[in-house]
């Protein structure tokens, strides 16, 4: 039971940060309620988890494992808050405090929501197109020697070019800025998916194909039932890599002439020297990105249930 003190450490810094925020007056004009709301919510959250952990078991172990990190984040909140809004040690406007960021997030929540949706729409369209096109071309290159001969060298050369370098070309080809951004995101997602898929199919054990053929499978049946399911782990490795690359392409392409989205919002806020908004957008971006990754992981775990417990 020696770890149970760490449970206190998970909750106490948030309570202390809340107390210091209420007790110390700010040196700038600021609405601190959203930040206090966040700290109160986190205090309540970790307090509840601590109470639930009193019953012991794996739930308590999970909390004990994470407690030091959770608590450290609370300490950072408190110190950061004191150094910025409370004392002005960190120079403004470049380094706003957590309370200012929360203030912006709360005040401009509808603008953020709209820009999030813009980014998500662009991501969904570009990423879906890129990974679909990537897995199809990867399957063709991995499956057929002829496709491999002609396309693999091209893919290797085109794939290493950062999508952003293609902006001038894509701008000429595409009719408007949205489709330009979609194309850029799609291109950046395409390469990692296509490459790992092709490699995945090529590395499937030859005897699976031999066994399938002897059992009476046609070439097309083997493609559908052996090559593609066998390549799914590789496809998802590619998709995970592609998510990060596509996301950074997304933000950059939104900065060059889009009319909405988190990248656009950051550019706009920077123009107004509104750094609190910039940081707010970055925080939202991180949350958005983590959610997308979690969703993709969920799909992957469902599709790869056959691998569970398999040590390769």
């Amino acid at each position: 039971m020696k770890h149970s003190y760490w449970r206190l450490f998970a909750v106490l810094p948030y309570a202390a940060a809340l107390a210091s925020n209420i007790l110390i007056p700010p040196v700038i004009e600021i609405d601190e309620l959203p930040f206090r709301g966040l700290l109160a919510a986190l205090t309540a959250y970790f307090g509840t988890r601590g109470l639930l952990a009193l019953r012991g078991g794996p739930y308590a172990e999970a909390l004990d494992r994470g407690a030091r990190f959770y608590g450290a984040v609370g300490v950072v909140f408190m110190v950061w808050d004191v150094l910025s809004s409370k004392t002005g040690v960190l120079p403004l406007p470049f380094f706003p405090g957590p309370a200012q960021i929360m203030e912006v997030m709360f005040r401009e929540r509808s603008a953020h929501a709209v820009n999030c949706l813009y980014s998500l729409r662009l991501f969904a369209a570009g990423f879906a197109a890129g990974s679909l096109f990537g897995s199809v071309s990867g399957i063709l290159i991995g499956w057929s020697d002829r496709w491999h001969y002609w396309l693999f060298p091209i893919m290797k050369v085109v794939g290493v070019i950062p999508a952003i370098a293609l902006v001038p070309l894509v701008l000429i080809v595409m009719p408007d800025t949205f489709s330009t951004a979609v194309a850029l995101v799609a291109i950046s997602a395409w390469f990692p998916v296509a490459f790992t898929t092709a490699r995945g199919i090529r590395s499937i054990d030859r005897t699976y194909f031999e066994a399938a053929r002897i059992l009476g499978a046609s070439d097309f049946y083997m493609l559908r039932k052996i090559a593609i399911p066998g390549a799914v782990p590789a496809i998802f490795t590619g998709i995970s890599t592609a998510t990060g690359i596509a996301f950074s392409t997304l933000v950059v392409s939104e900065m060059i002439g889009a009319r909405g989205g988190l990248g656009y919002y950051i550019n706009l806020a920077m123009g107004w020297m509104n750094y609190a908004s910039v940081y707010a957008a970055i925080v939202i971006m991180a949350i958005l990105f983590i959610s997308v990754l979690t969703a993709i992981n969920g799909i992957k775990n469902r599709l790869l249930a056959w691998q569970k417990g398999l040590i390769k």
Partner: peptide, 23 residues
Amino acid sequence: FQQANLFPWKTVEENVAFGLKAR
């Protein structure tokens, strides 16, 4: 085969049914 060579992404039942489905 020497190694049973069952398709790892298919259940035992789906593996046994493979030949029937393929044909």
